[in-house]
C-alpha cells in the first residue's frame, strides 16, 4: 500500500533526467535520494541526467552511491559507454521523470520481460519492523517469466512478474534463497546465502535474461529505524529485593521454634510438679 501511490506516479511519467529546481514540478520540495542500478547485461553505459553525465562507464551489476537530488522532474538518458551524447542515440531514455521530495528511489536500467532495455524507478520504503525482524523485497527486473522466491526451501513470495516488486517481513538472519519459475521447483537463480539485516530492507533484484542464460541476483540494503526490544525481564525470584524474604521467613520460623521450645519446657515443668 505504502509503495503504490509513488510508484504509480513515477511509472505514469516516463523516466529519468535530473532536473534543476527551476523546472521542478509540483512533486514536492526538498531533496530526494536516488540510487541507480545497472541491470542490463553486457552493456557498459554512461548515464546522463538533464544532459549532464552522472555515472560514467557504469558496468552491469553495479549500483551507484545514493545521490541527493532536488525534487523535480528529470530527463534521463543512458548511452553506451564513451558515446557522444550530442550525436549518439541513447540506449534507453526516459523524460520528465518525477522525483518527489523526501523520497528514496532506485532507478533500475534493466531488460523488460521480453528483453528490451528499459528504466524503472522503484520507491524504497522500509516497513516498520519489530525488533529482530527484517524486510525482504524482491524486484523482478529480468527478461524472464513469473517467478517465486524461496527462502530455506519455502516460497515466501509468489508469482512475481517484471517489472514488479513484492515484500515480506521475516526474521533477520542469513537464509539460503533461490528463485524458481512460478509454481514450479525449477530453479532459475541461486541458491545464494542472503543476509537479511535486522531493522533494514534488503532489496534483491532478479536480473539478466533467461534466454541468454545469465540470470543473476543483485542486492541493495536500505536501513530503516528498526525497533528495540520492548523490555528486559531479568529476574524472577525476588532474591535481590534487599535481603531475601526467605531470610525473614527463616527468622520467623526460628522465633516460632523458640516459642514452641519454651512452651514445651513450661508444660513439662508444670507436669513435673
Amino acid at each position: 500500500m505504502r509503495k503504490i501511490p509513488v510508484v504509480a506516479a513515477l511509472v505514469a511519467v516516463p523516466l529519468v533526467a535530473l532536473a534543476a529546481p527551476a523546472t521542478a514540478g509540483a512533486a514536492g520540495t526538498g531533496n530526494a535520494t536516488v540510487s541507480i542500478l545497472h541491470a542490463v547485461p553486457d552493456l557498459p553505459v554512461d548515464v546522463y541526467a538533464n544532459g549532464n553525465e552522472v555515472v560514467g562507464d557504469f558496468t552491469p551489476g553495479t549500483l551507484t552511491d545514493p545521490l541527493q537530488l532536488p525534487a523535480g522532474s528529470y530527463d534521463l538518458a543512458v548511452f553506451p559507454a564513451g558515446a557522444d551524447p550530442a550525436t549518439a542515440q541513447p540506449a534507453i531514455s526516459a523524460n520528465d521523470v518525477t522525483v518527489p521530495g523526501g523520497a528514496n528511489i532506485t532507478v533500475v536500467a534493466h531488460l523488460s520481460a521480453t528483453g528490451a532495455p528499459t528504466l524503472t524507478p522503484f520507491v524504497n520504503s522500509p516497513a516498520d519492523l519489530a525488533a529482530g525482524e527484517a524486510e525482504l523485497t524482491v524486484r523482478h527486473t529480468a527478461a524472464a517469466p513469473a517467478v517465486d522466491v524461496r527462502a530455506g526451501g519455502t516460497a515466501v513470495l509468489s508469482g512475481l512478474t517484471n517489472p514488479n516488486e513484492a515484500s515480506v517481513t521475516v526474521p533477520a538472519g542469513t537464509v539460503s534463497a533461490d528463485v524458481v519459475l512460478a509454481g514450479t521447483s525449477t530453479v532459475a537463480i541461486g541458491p545464494a546465502d542472503l543476509t537479511l539485516a535486522e531493522g533494514a530492507e534488503t532489496i534483491v533484484y532478479a536480473w539478466g535474461s533467461a534466454e541468454a542464460g545469465n540470470l543473476m541476483l543483485a542486492t541493495q540494503t536500505i536501513n530503516g529505524d528498526g525497533s528495540a526490544p520492548g523490555g528486559v525481564p531479568s529476574g524472577e525470584a525476588g532474591l535481590a529485593d534487599g535481603v531475601s524474604p526467605w531470610v525473614a521467613g527463616a527468622g520467623v520460623l526460628l522465633l516460632a521454634g523458640a516459642g514452641a521450645t519454651v512452651l514445651r519446657a513450661r508444660t513439662r515443668v508444670t507436669a513435673g510438679r
Binding site: P21, N50, L67, T219
Partner: peptide
Amino acid sequence: TTPTAVEDPAAVGVPAPLVGTRSAAVPPPP
C-alpha cells in the same frame, strides 16, 4: 548518513561530479 550530494548541474553550469558505484552482487554474510 549523508548521501553523496550532487550539485544541481543546471545551476552551476558545469558537469556534476560523477557519483561513486559499487558491485551489487550478493555480499558474503558479514
